[in-house]
């Protein structure tokens, strides 16, 4: 994944960038499977590696932009900022509990109750589904609304433009 990420930042060919972000997503999905998060892995593989790659390719077909101007000079200000932020983030992770630590705060809050009672209360064996759909129903409603908004945004930006702006000049030129 680190290799893919580095290559992603270096490569200037946008086709390669799309392909490599797909590879990155697929590796991430495999990582999630290793960590027993199959639901997340499923989504990552379908959305990140599948749909996002196809959308990226579709965008490339429209824009046809190849490599943009190369940046040669190293900008030291932003580089310093990135290094400081990265160091702060890594410093922050030092205080986090070890991976899989049963005493971690997240395992002591509502998780045990969900795991113990979810099947009895909802009749759904998959706890991920019951948490997403029932206990955290508001969050999922919000997510669905976000997706609706995203589609509406795309429609407004590109769907309308297509009919009005693209048609208008041709009519003018015909007249």
């Amino acid at each position: 994944m680190a290799v893919t990420a580095l290559a992603l930042a270096r490569v200037r060919n946008l086709f390669a960038v799309v392909m490599m972000s797909g590879i990155f997503s697929l590796t991430a999905a495999a990582l999630y499977v290793v960590q027993d998060a199959v639901d997340v892995a499923f989504t990552e593989a379908a959305v990140g590696a599948g749909i996002a790659t196809v959308l990226g390719l579709a965008t490339l077909a429209v824009t046809r932009s190849e490599a943009e101007k190369k940046v040669r000079a190293v900008a030291f200000g932003p580089l310093l900022l990135v290094i400081v932020t990265g160091a702060a983030l890594i410093y922050g992770t030092l205080d986090m509990p070890d991976y899989g630590d049963p005493a971690a705060p997240i395992h002591g809050h509502v998780a045990p109750r969900y795991l113990a009672d979810s099947e009895k209360e909802t009749g759904v064996p998959n706890v991920v589904t019951s948490v997403l759909a029932s206990y955290r129903g508001y969050d999922t409603l919000g997510e669905t609304t976000v997706i609706l908004t995203a589609a509406c945004g795309v429609l407004m930006l590109l769907g309308r433009n297509r009919r009005q702006k693209r048609n208008a000049p041709t009519r003018d030129s015909a007249a």
């Binding site: 959308l55 579709a58 999922t140 997706i147």
Partner: peptide, 30 residues
């Protein structure tokens, strides 16, 4: 609970699939 979860999952299904199809059609249709 079962009925509710099925219903809202169906709602999510409709919105997500339509959104993905819409976004792709708009992009690819340019």
């Amino acid at each position: 609970q079962h009925l509710g979860i099925s219903l809202i999952e169906f709602g999510v299904f409709m919105t997500v699939s339509s959104a993905m199809i819409t976004i792709f059609f708009v992009f690819a249709g340019q």
